[in-house]
């Protein structure tokens, strides 16, 4: 009897392990490989470029348009797209060499540089400070940034919002210690804001647009004059050294897809709404106050990014001072 039981147990255990193995295999993100363009072309597809993207970014638009695949197929490349929920995870993938190129907001590269991850900046996105800002409740007694003194403010630690808030307080003559920070990721922040557990919430689009349309929020101030809140396009150091041409072609395509996005708002909203699971009115606000595009890494832009890095160092978010220029001499 005992032996029988043991066998039964072992069989069950094995089945379970096999099942979990199988499930783990399925759960792994299946990268979309696009080879369609290869047919009409004589160049043989031999190499793969691996791109990391986030759902609400310019690379996502590029992916949806499918133009990059066609262009790179001529060079013998196929494109593999990998989706990431957040910037830090994308940087981890760059670190491990699982992706060649990726896009994040302005703060993940700073942490990555402080952590010694081998990557370089290849280009920047256009400023998008209209969509990022400090939100308060419609009927809030907070009328100006000065009123934030002594209030609880929610934001994600070490995000572009963190920087925006520090700059806003600075401009209003307040100190960071004058407020009570509540570190919350955007999703959690929304709930805390709606429940009035926090007095103000610093966040970016499309979260801010969604809160403005759906959670009685109004923007106390946006990021204008405080931050530029850019996207950054990053590449693995090795890859950037060896494949400058590919990177340039990719930047061209990002530019082209951004132009499309700027001139086709209606189509863009239709395309993004179901994927981001955000209602169209909110998305309309977000899309209309944002300009897609690519900026060169000018000295002015390097200075902006250096200021963010210095601020994070002062806030003890990064353990050492970094020189962002070192990774920008592409």
């Amino acid at each position: 009897m005992k032996v029988k039981r043991l066998t039964l147990f072992l069989t069950m255990l094995c089945t379970f392990l096999l099942a979990s193995l199988f499930l783990a295999g399925c759960g792994k993100s299946e990268p979309d490989k696009s080879k369609s363009a290869a047919k009409n072309d004589k160049v043989k597809i031999t190499k793969t470029i691996r791109i990391g993207y986030q759902k609400n970014g310019p690379l996502f638009i590029l992916k949806s348009l499918g133009t990059l695949e066609k262009r790179l197929a001529k060079k013998g490349y196929q494109v593999e797209w990998n989706e990431f929920q957040a910037g830090p995870a994308l940087m981890e993938a760059l670190n491990a060499g699982s992706i060649d190129i990726g896009r994040t907001g302005d703060s993940p590269p700073i942490f990555a540089q402080a952590a010694g991850i081998p990557f370089v900046y290849i280009a920047a996105g256009k400023p998008k400070f209209y969509g990022s800002g400090i939100l308060v409740h419609d009927n809030s007694s907070i009328k100006s940034i000065k009123d934030l003194k002594g209030k609880t403010i929610g934001f994600a630690k070490g995000s572009s919002s963190h920087y925006l808030l520090v700059k806003a307080l600075e401009k209003a003559g307040l100190k960071y210690s004058d407020i009570t920070p509540a570190f919350l990721q955007p999703g959690d922040g929304r709930i805390a804001f709606e429940q009035k557990k926090i007095d103000a919430w610093v966040v970016w689009d499309p979260f801010s647009a969604a809160a403005e349309t759906g959670a009685n929020a109004k923007m106390l101030t946006n990021g204008e004059g405080l931050t530029t809140d850019r996207d950054f396009f990053l590449a693995n150091e090795e890859f950037a050294k060896k494949h400058k041409d590919i990177i340039n072609e990719m930047i061209d395509e990002i530019k082209a897809s951004s132009e499309w996005a700027n001139s086709h708002h209606a189509e863009l909203i239709k395309m993004l709404a179901p994927l981001l699971k955000i209602d169209e009115p909110s998305l309309k606000i977000a899309v209309e106050r944002r300009e897609y595009g690519v900026d060169e890494l000018t000295p002015q832009l390097i200075k902006e990014q250096q200021q963010i890095a210095d601020t994070f160092y002062d806030l003890k978010i990064i353990p050492k001072k970094i020189i962002v220029k070192d990774l920008m001499n592409h």
């Binding site: 830090p88 940087m91 981890e92 670190n95 942490f111 990555a112 402080a114 952590a115 991850i117 929610g154 630690k157 070490g158 920070p181 509540a182 570190f183 919350l184 990721q185 959690d188 805390a192 978010i317 990064i318 353990p319």
Partner: peptide, 22 residues
């Protein structure tokens, strides 16, 4: 400790992950 925490070892671990401090 991901819910608006400022200290704690869970916070420390998650925070280090966010900021890539291996």
């Amino acid at each position: 400790e991901t819910i608006s925490a400022h200290s704690g070892i869970g916070y420390m671990a998650m925070n280090a992950r966010e900021f890539l401090q291996m």
